[in-house]
Structures are given as C-alpha cells and as structure tokens.
C-alpha cells in the first residue's frame, strides 16, 4: 500500500521525507544533530534545468518517472515470455553441436550459446515468477505467439541427423534467422513503455545477438560447399 504511494512521489520528495523520518527515529539516540552522524549539510536536491533546456515543465512533473519506470506492462511480460521460449530453441539447437559440428569456432559459439542463453532464460523466468505472484494478469499464451526466427521442430530433427559441414551450414542458417528474430522482438519491446530492467535486457539481447550474427556469417563464408 505504502509502496504504491511511494512510486508516485518524486524522488527528491521521498529523500527529504526519508531524511526527516530518520531524524524522528534517530531522535531517541540524540536526534538529527551533527554529532549523530547524519551530515546536516548533506543535501538532496533536484537542480533546475540549464538554459535552453528541452524541458517543457520547470519542476512539478505531472508524470512522475517512477510510474512509467517501475510499472510492469503487458509488453514486458510478452517480451519476457517469448524470449524465454526463443532462447530455449537456440539452446536446443546449439546443444546438438557437440559430436556433429566441424568448424572449431562454430563449436565454441555453440558452446557459448548453450551457456549464455540458458542462463539468461533462467534470469527471465525468475523475473516472470516474481511478477506472476503480483496483481498483473496477462494471458501469456495469447501473446507469446509473436515470435520470429523460430527454430522449428523439423529443423531440430534434421540437425540431429547431420554432421560435419552439413550440420555447420544448417546451424548457421537457422541460428542467424533465430538471432534476427530476437533482435526484432527486442526492438518491438523498445517501442513500448514498461520496466526499465526489461528495456535494458532488450537492448542487451539486440546487441549481443547482432554481434553473434556477424560472427556466424563470417564462419558461413568459409564453410566448404556441399
């Protein structure tokens, strides 16, 4: 209850409030004096905008940052749910690489995908579990359909039967399409509002997977043709 109200109070107000509350609580132990250790000169401030500012308001924001920043949106939940499934597909394909892959650098990338994307999927699941106990009701199954770059069951089955450069070619083709899909999904989330932690994740996914696409394409260029 109180926590929700706090979200609507701009930070400096909260800090001032907190400082004065601290004085009240500390009063029993000497109050808010210099000797108490709370530096009376420590100031919590929100500076005015500089000259030529793009700000249309000069203080007294009518859209407190915390409301936008900390509220989990349906876009967040959609993105996180879809990305968990998307990561799991990459992990499944990459998990087929040992014993089948030929190119050593591709083997290293596959190993890294298994490690990193399964760890990220775990983090995303943790985020989701923490929210599922809250009052946010989103029909995830409806929204998780918007996944691009899916690695189909038939692709996985085919990969399981290939080895050597044939496996390598299939792997690169499927993984590049998969990563491009991840970037699209991340970009879609970045056009929406929501939890800024999720926005930062989306940026991180887009960045990391674009780097990996470039490396996969460089490997593909040198793979022997069938």
């Amino acid at each position: 209850m109180i926590e929700r109200r706090a979200k609507a109070v701009p930070l400096p107000t909260r800090l001032r409030l907190a400082a004065s509350l601290a004085c009240v609580i500390a009063a029993g132990a000497g109050g808010c004096t210099a000797a108490s250790g709370v530096d009376p000169s420590a100031s919590f401030i929100t500076p005015a905008p500089p000259g030529g500012s793009s700000s249309r308001s000069d203080g007294g924001s009518d859209a407190p940052a915390a409301e936008l920043d900390s509220t989990t949106t349906a876009a967040d939940v959609d993105f996180v749910r879809a990305m968990i499934a998307h990561h799991e597909q990459a992990v499944e394909l990459a998990g087929l690489a040992p014993g089948r892959v030929d190119d050593p650098e591709l083997a290293a990338i596959a190993e890294r995908i298994v490690l990193v994307q399964s760890a990220e999927a775990t983090q995303l699941r943790t985020w989701l579990e923490r929210r599922s106990s809250r009052d946010l009701e989103v029909d995830a199954h409806e929204h998780a359909g918007g996944m691009t770059g899916e690695i189909s069951r038939s692709t996985l089955d085919r990969a399981a039967e290939l080895e050597g450069s044939a496996f390598d070619r299939l792997f690169v083709g499927a993984m590049v399409a998969h990563h491009r899909g991840a970037i699209e999904m991340s970009e879609a989330r970045l056009t929406e509002t929501g939890d800024s932690a999720v926005a930062r994740w989306a940026r991180g996914v887009a960045t990391a997977q674009s780097l990996e696409i470039d490396r996969l394409l460089a490997i593909e260029a040198r793979l022997p043709q069938s």
Binding site: P49, P50, S54, S55, S196
Partner: peptide, 17 residues
Amino acid sequence: DETMSDDSCEASRVPET
C-alpha cells in the same frame, strides 16, 4: 544512455521510438 522525455532532472524514461 536511456531515452528520456526531456533533458531536465524531472524527466521520465520513454520508449526509444
């Protein structure tokens, strides 16, 4: 490095687009 509603210290985070 986050897209903000304006340059002031009262700004809020807004989508990239």
